[in-house]
Amino acid sequence: MTKAAPLLLSALAGATALLLTVTAPATADPNSINPIPVLNGTNGLPNLPGRTKAVFQVTGMASPNNTENYNVLGTDLGIMWDNGNGEMLTAFGDTAGLGIPNLLIGSTWAWRSNILLRSHTQNPGNGIFFDSVVRDIFGQARDLIPSPKIPFIEISRIPTAGIAVGGTQIMSMMSVKTWDDVGEWTTNFSSIAVSGDNGENWVELPATRRPNDGGNANFQMNAFVKGGGFVYEYGTPSGRNHPAYVARVPEGAVGDLGAYEYWDGGKWQKDVNAAQPVIGGGVAEMSVQWNDYLGQYIMLTTDPWNSVVMYTSPNPEGPWSAPSVLIDTRELPTAYAPYIFPYQTGRDLYFLTTVHSQYNVILMHTTL
């Protein structure tokens, strides 16, 4: 960011006070937001009375990471994975910054749909600190896969999962066609993008596109986890409050949709239309990881009331437990998209979640 940036921030301060801060529990449309601290009603970390505590603001002007230095004033998601060499990559979704606003989609901000930051933080007890960011020629965080941001064509291309296989970084993304009612949106397709240079440059694999119809409609928002030589892909339809499904593919064949198998409730099948839910409903943005302390797989998501919840299972395909609440919606009604820190931390469970009312990502801690 140039030296003029502080002046631009000052000039925007009055204008941002007029922006609408969305406080509906499960809003989807990211365009009417205000990421400026104090002006959006926030001052410091949320004080949560339940089992989970907010420990560190990861992004935004109130973060020790000072992400405004590369034009990230506000963002959401926070999908973390190990790159295979002990470095953590984190993909963020719709990101607000300074620049030419996209008035076509009703945004006062310049928007990017998918950005990536890197970190060597292994113990997040004192926060997650970033070492580098994928930048444009002006030093600002840039889109990994560009999106035209045209309603009814593609309004955003948003990451939903990431994993490393054999030195290749793999990211699942959804092409959003429209923002619909609260908690609902319509996708064109989901697909996989890959990077061979530690996330600096990405290429979409068109052959991995899953159109939003038939059985493929159940894999529009995804989560990845490895196990037994397979990559397991958990999927839901676009939007929130849906069933979750699971597929698996040999690690070396992630880019080949013909190599995937789908859990039909009793066995693995090649037919995507045979997939049956492993969790019957109430699933939104999700993350899945094996947890050494519990000796179980865990899934974090939000439920229909917008509480952050955790499911557990001894196997990738289930059976999955009933959900336990980590953050009650009454504590933090605009929280969504809980993503698990990728390194084992014993009884301490760390995850990122977005708080829409301040449109930034916060590190959370709970004790298992």
Rank of each mutant, 00 (worst) to 15 (best):
P159E: 04
T160V: 14
T160E: 10
G162K: 01
G162E: 01
V165Q: 11
T168N: 08
S172A: 15
S172W: 06
S175W: 04
K177S: 14
T178S: 13
T178N: 15
D181T: 14
D181A: 15
D181K: 12
V182P: 06
E184Y: 13
E184A: 15
E184G: 09
W185E: 10
W185A: 14
T186V: 13
T186L: 14
T187S: 15
T187K: 11
F189W: 15
F189L: 07
S190N: 13
S190K: 07
V194C: 00
G196A: 03
N198H: 14
E200W: 08
E200N: 13
E200V: 15
W202S: 00
E204P: 00
E204R: 09
P206C: 06
A207I: 08
N212Q: 11
G214V: 05
G214I: 02
F219L: 06
Q220R: 10
N222R: 10
K226P: 01
G227N: 15
G227F: 12
G228Q: 02
G229Q: 03
G229P: 07
G229E: 03
G229A: 06
V231E: 05
Y232A: 06
Y232R: 07
E233H: 03
Y234E: 01
G235W: 07
T236E: 00
P237C: 04
P237V: 03
S238T: 09
S238Q: 07
G239S: 03
G239W: 01
N241D: 15
H242L: 10
A247Q: 08
V249H: 03
V249W: 00
V249P: 00
P250D: 05
P250V: 10
E251C: 09
V254L: 12
V254R: 00
G255V: 04
D256A: 07
D256Q: 12
G258Q: 12
A259H: 07
Y260I: 03
E261H: 03
E261A: 12
W263R: 00
K267E: 13
K267W: 03
W268E: 00
Q269F: 07
V272A: 12
N273C: 08
A274Q: 02
Q276R: 15
Q276E: 13
P277Y: 08
I279F: 04
G282P: 05
G282M: 04
V283C: 05
A284S: 15
E285I: 08
E285W: 04
S287F: 07
S287P: 02
S287T: 09
S287L: 10
Q289H: 13
Q289Y: 05
Q289M: 10
Q289P: 00
Q289V: 08
W290F: 11
W290C: 08
D292T: 14
Y293L: 02
